[in-house]
Design a protein around this nucleic acid. Sequence first.
RNA 1: GGCCCGGUCGUCUAACGGCUAGGACGCAGGAUUUUCAUUCCUGUAAUCGGGGUUCGAUUCCCCGUCGGGCUGCCA
Length: 511
Amino acid sequence: MKSLRVRFAPSPTGPLHMGGVRTALYNYLLAKKHGGQFVLRIEDTDQKRFVPGAVDYIREALEWAGIVPDEGYGYGGDYGPYRQSERKEIYDRYIRQLLDEGKAYYAFDTPEELDAARREAEKQGRTFTYDAATRMCMRNALSLPAGEVKRLLESDAPRVVRFKIPEGRTLVMQDLIRGQVRVNTSTLDDKVLVKSDGLPTYHLANIVDDRLMEITHVIRGEEWLPSLPLHILLYEAFGWQPPQFAHLPLILKPSGKGKLSKRDGDAGGFPVFPLSWTDPTTGKTTQGYRETGYLPQAFVNMLALLGWNPGTEQEIFTMDELITAFDLLRINKSGARFDPEKARWFQHQHFQKLSDDQMLELIIPVLEKHLQKDIRSDAGLMDYTRKVLALVRERLTFPQDFWTWTSFFYVAPETYAPKAVKKQWKSQTPEIMEQVLAILKKVEPWEAGTVKQTLSDWIGEQGLGFGKVLQPLRLALAGDLKGPDLFALMVLLGRDETLKRIRRALETLPG
RNA sequence: GGCCCGGUCGUCUAACGGCUAGGACGCAGGAUUUUCAUUCCUGUAAUCGGGGUUCGAUUCCCCGUCGGGCUGCCA
C-alpha cells in the first residue's frame, strides 16, 4: 500500500502566521495518524517577496510547536531539492511538454498593456479576464502570425507562458471537507505558468512538486479553493491523477470583519505569530506566543480545536491524543473567529498539568530576571522558591505570573497600595498591630498552625473580627490585599522579617 | 461587478430527518477563604429570513440575505 504523504508549503515572505501553523498541524496530524510522511517544502518562486530569516523562522516555529517534518528543506529526503528556487530545470521540462502539446502558449503582453486592458474593461463595468474570449485580441503565440512569434521568441522580448484553459466544461471536483465543488471552465482565465523572469508561478510549481514528491493529500487554506479548478486542469493536462484535496476554513478576527491579521494582534494585545519576529526592514519586533509565555502544547491544542472537534467533549489534548483523535472529516466548513480568552484558558489548563519541577524550571528565569541573580546555585533559595511555588501554583497561567503573585516573598514592600490602605488601615489599626507584634514575638514554634491558632484565639478574646487584624497585617507584609495564605507567608518569611515588615508599616503608614 | 465557499448561544462547537437543541470560553450570581486568585455549584444565551419536500427539518432542496475568499508575471 502506498503511504500517505502530505506537505506544508509556506512561502518565506515573512513570519509564519498562526493560521499557517494550524495548516501545518493538520497536515502533521494526518501524517502521524496514518504512519505517513510530513514534508516541508519552501515555495520561494517569487524572488521579489523573499524575506531573509523567514525560512529559519518557519522551521524554528514548527519545531517549537512540535510539528517536526519527516523530510523537506533542512530535513533531508529522497524527493529534493525541497526549495522551489532550486528546481527550475525540473519545471522547465514540464512547461516544455505543455508548450509542445499546445496546452500552454507564450504571451508577450507587457504589464502596462494588461493594466490598460483591465482598466478598459472596468470602464465598461466588467472584469478583464485573459481567456478564450479575449486571448485572440492580445499579443501571444495564438493571436500573432507565426513569423512574428518566431521573431519575438528569438529576440529578448519579455514573455510569459500561459495555460490555455479549455472552454465550456463543467468540472466536478471532490473536496474532503466541502464535498462536491462544481465550476465551469469558462469562468477561468489563462493563468500565467511561467513569469518573465523564467521562474514558474505557484500553480505550476505546486502541481509538479506535489506529483514528483508523491503527495497524496493536499491540505491547505480555503484561499486556494478558487484555484482548485486550474490545478485539476493542470493535472489533467499532464495526464496525472490528482491527489485528494482538503480546503481548510480560515481563522477570522476576534471581532469585526475579515481574516485574522497581524494588526489584530497589535490592537487586541494577543500574539498572532508563534514566535517573536523582528522585521528586517523596520526593525520592529512583534511578540510571539512563545515569548508571551505560552506552552507549545497549549498553543497546539488551541489551534487544533479552532475549526476541528473530536466529536466528544474532550477539549484538552496532548499531541499524541490529537494524533489519535484527528479526522479530516470532522473539520468545519465555516471560518472560525479566534478567541484570545479561550487561548488563555487552554494555556492555563496545560500549565496546570505541569509537574512542580517542570513549573519550577519555567519560573527560575523569571525570578532571575527580577532578582538579578543566579538562583540555581543557591540551594536555600531554590528550596524557598519550591515552597513559594507550592502556595501559588494553581493561580498561574504564565510563568511571568509567578512574580506578580509572589514578589513580596522575595522583596519587602516599599509602598502600600493606596486603595488598600484607605480601606484597611484605620485609626485603631496601629494599636492592634502593636499587640500583634508583641504576640508574634513570642509565639512558639514559628509554624503556620501555631501562629494561626494563637492569633485566632487572641482575636476571639478581643472580639475584634478577623478582617480588622488580618487585613492590615497582610497589607504590612505584602503591600496589598492579595496573595496566598497569610500564615504560610509569615512562616516562609521568618519571624524576623515578619516583625520587621510590621514595624516598617507602623512607621510608614498613617497613625 | 464576476466566480467560489460558508451561516446553531457574544465566541469555539455538538446533535442517523425524531428527547427539554448538549458542552466549552466569556459573563452574572452563589459556596469556600483573613484577602486576591484558584476550585466547585447555579444561571445566562442560539438554529439568518422566506418558501418547499416530509407525519416530523438545525439537518434535504430552492430563493433571498448576511459573512468570507478569489478575481496579480503574489503565495
